[in-house]
């Protein structure tokens, strides 16, 4: 649905060059919620602004719903008619909501419809319908300043949906909200994704956002995407930074001659009593350093950090046993490369 290839953005100011995006290849499938996570300055904002050409990329292409937007942009600094039409089919929500304070909630939602040249009656019908969808039907006549942050963002979402977009871009939509409101807004995005088949590309610096709504995720660092894939793939990828950030378990090794192993369960494996089987089969004492079960991307996932007596070399057989059970094993202190070979 959204594809970027070789997307590069270089900012030039007073002779200095800053590369915000360095050849980003992103592929968002239709109907999925895709999260791009990274620290401030990683280039997330530039990325999402390049998708609807609010920022013009220095190089590379952006294709949304089969339409090459970079080709529509032309050479001038201003957006031509075709690009503006394409933009009206891409909804966008912002961290600071960006509602017009001089307009009522309903008039804010009607704004994109005014731009599309819809008649007054059509506009108000559509706006009220959307406000109902986001649960704010009773606030139609209120002004944004009278709403809470979460309500403002709901208006922002209703407004973004006014042009019946297939794609919704979310620029840190929950970063200015408290945790509880964040959850309700994310739930709304998830519902819209499922009810309307909306494809959502969101950027965030909060791991929880990715954890609770995303089907796929990408980790961005210094203008590059360093890891990406569906959440399931990421959790299954040995040594994945995103996976361990999505699902952290803590606990330190008790001593030098110990092996610490992270065991990740998903699907069937989660129901098997593997740890007691391991203990009984090899007659070893296993200490559990930390464990957690959570839902990531709608999947039940468990992760456990266990400690086995003896060095890694002494534990090759028990670790092999765990792998045979279809579990994902990460041995701490071992190179991910080795693990990858071991997993195959």
């Amino acid at each position: 649905m959204i594809t970027t290839s070789g997307l590069t953005k270089v900012y030039r100011s007073r002779g200095r060059e800053v590369t915000a995006l360095d050849g980003v290849d992103l592929h968002v499938r239709e109907g999925e919620v895709y999260g791009v996570i990274g620290q401030s300055g990683a280039g997330k904002s530039s990325l999402i602004r390049c998708v609807n050409l609010l920022e013009k990329p220095t190089a590379g292409t952006v294709t949304v719903d089969g339409q090459d937007l970079t080709a529509l942009a032309g050479r001038g600094p201003r957006a031509g008619r075709e690009l503006r039409q394409a933009r009206s089919r891409i909804g966008m929500v912002f961290q600071h909501f960006n509602l017009l304070s001089s307009r009522t909630v309903q008039d804010n939602v009607e704004l994109p419809l005014e731009i599309l040249g819809k008649s007054g009656k059509e506009r108000s019908v559509k706006a009220l319908e959307l406000l109902d969808l986001v649960g704010l039907a009773d606030k139609a006549k209120a002004y944004p300043a009278q709403l809470s942050g979460g309500q403002k963002q709901r208006v922002g979402i209703a407004r973004a949906l006014a042009g019946d977009p297939k794609v919704l871009l979310s620029d840190e939509a929950t970063s200015a909200l408290d945790p509880e409101t964040t959850r309700s807004i994310l739930q709304l995005l998830r519902d819209l994704n499922q009810q309307l088949g909306l494809t959502v590309l969101l950027i965030t610096h909060e791991m929880d956002v990715v954890k609770s709504v995303c089907d796929s995720a990408a980790l961005m660092q210094n203008g590059r995407i360093v890891e990406s894939g569906t959440v399931t793939e990421l959790l299954a990828a040995p040594g994945s930074e995103l996976a361990s950030a999505l699902f952290p378990v803590s606990g330190e090794a008790g001593g030098e001659d110990r092996t610490v192993v992270d065991v990740t369960f998903h699907g069937e494996a989660a129901t098997q009593p593997v740890i007691s089987q391991l203990s009984r089969t090899y007659n070893i004492d296993i200490s559990i350093l930390g464990a957690a079960i959570d839902t990531v991307g709608g999947l039940q996932v468990g992760r456990m950090r266990i400690e086995l007596p003896g060095r890694y070399e002494d534990n090759v057989v028990p670790i092999g046993f765990l792998r045979e059970q279809g579990l994902q094993i990460d041995v701490l202190g071992q190179e991910p490369v080795l693990l990858k070979e071991g997993a195959k």
């Binding site: 609807n52 394409a86 009206s88 912002f94 994109p112």
Partner: peptide, 8 residues
């Protein structure tokens, strides 16, 4: 920016 993103 918001109005630009709506195609204004």
């Amino acid at each position: 920016e918001a109005v630009q993103s709506m195609g204004g």
